[in-house]
């Protein structure tokens, strides 16, 4: 399987550009069912821990992100849009097999 070709910090920007998203949180224990090896999400030059966790599992990639939603947006819609943005990002970055995209809204408003 190919590694994601685009650096995850770009993915950060991509997610933050989704209307309604105003923060990314470090993926907490609520999300991380890290069974396999952590791929390139833990990139070099880590000033802050990367909030997006990409895990390589048997069947493909599992991606987790935890977001904050700004006021005046419906969190479920924003959450679905973030899922779509992640899916689109990876399909343009070599289209690896994805088994899971987990998006959690950790804060609203």
């Amino acid at each position: 399987m190919s590694e994601p070709a685009i650096a995850p910090d770009r993915l950060d920007d991509y997610i933050l550009a989704v209307p309604g998203v105003d923060a990314l949180y470090p993926a907490g224990p609520l999300l991380t069912t890290v069974v396999a090896s952590v791929v390139s999400a833990l990139i070099p030059s880590v000033a802050a821990p990367n909030p997006i966790v990409v895990v390589e599992r048997a069947g493909g990639l599992s991606i987790s992100a935890s977001i904050g939603v700004g006021p005046d947006h419906a969190a479920p819609d924003v959450c679905r849009r973030v899922h779509d943005a992640i899916a689109e990002h990876f399909s343009r970055a070599g289209d690896p097999v994805i088994v899971e995209i987990a998006v959690t809204v950790a804060r609203i408003g």
């Binding site: 479920p76 959450c79 899916a87 959690t104 809204v105 950790a106 609203i108 408003g109």
Partner: peptide, 30 residues
């Protein structure tokens, strides 16, 4: 950055790979 998550409240999606959720803490906060 240390949000209080609480339980995971699932959200529906058409995507077969999606696992979407709100944290209980987010709902209590709003």
């Amino acid at each position: 950055l240390e949000t209080r998550a609480g339980r995971r409240i699932p959200l529906t999606s058409d995507s077969p790979v999606a696992r979407l959720a709100l944290t209980e803490g987010a709902v209590i906060g709003v």
